[in-house]
Amino acid sequence: MTLTLTVPPGAKVRVRITNENGETTEIEVEPGETVTITLPAGSTVRVEVEVVDPDGRKRTETFTLKP
């Protein structure tokens, strides 16, 4: 399973991925970048995406991906 994120110009994104064992991976994606994350097959993962807009506003979306 893959997750692809494209960050709009001016925004910053931090992604936290937590697996079933509670292990967390965190990455930051710079403005204008596209990143593809390969998620472990057969695992349920929690993905938290934090977006910081150019004006400093933050918003966070959290979702769970199941196999």
Rank of each mutant, 00 (worst) to 15 (best):
T62P: 00
T38Y: 08
T38S: 04
T64V: 14
G32K: 12
E28N: 09
E33A: 10
T25Y: 10
G56K: 00
A41D: 06
P8G: 14
K66A: 14
E23N: 09
T44R: 02
E61M: 15
K58W: 01
T60S: 02
T34F: 13
E33Y: 09
T25H: 03
T60G: 00
K58F: 01
T18V: 14
P54F: 07
T2S: 05
R57T: 09
G10V: 04
I17Q: 10
G56W: 00
V49S: 01
R57F: 04
T62L: 02
G22H: 08
T60M: 03
V52S: 03
V45Q: 05
R57A: 02
L39A: 13
T60C: 14
E33K: 12
L39I: 05
L3F: 03
E50D: 09
V45L: 10
R16L: 05
T64L: 13
E28I: 02
L5Q: 02
T60E: 00
T6D: 14
R57Y: 02
K58I: 12
K12A: 08
T62M: 03
T60I: 12
R57L: 02
I27Q: 11
I27H: 11
N19W: 11
V47A: 01
T4H: 10
E33P: 10
T24L: 04
T24F: 10
G56R: 00
L5R: 04
V7F: 14
T6A: 12
R46A: 02
E50S: 04
I37V: 08
P40F: 14
K66E: 15
K66L: 14
E26D: 06
M1W: 13
T62G: 05
G42C: 15
V45S: 02
G10W: 01
G32C: 10
P67C: 15
F63Q: 15
G10C: 13
V45F: 08
V47M: 03
L65P: 14
T2L: 14
S43Q: 14
V35E: 03
V15P: 01
E50N: 02
P31A: 05
I27L: 09
K66G: 15
T34W: 14
T2Y: 11
P54N: 04
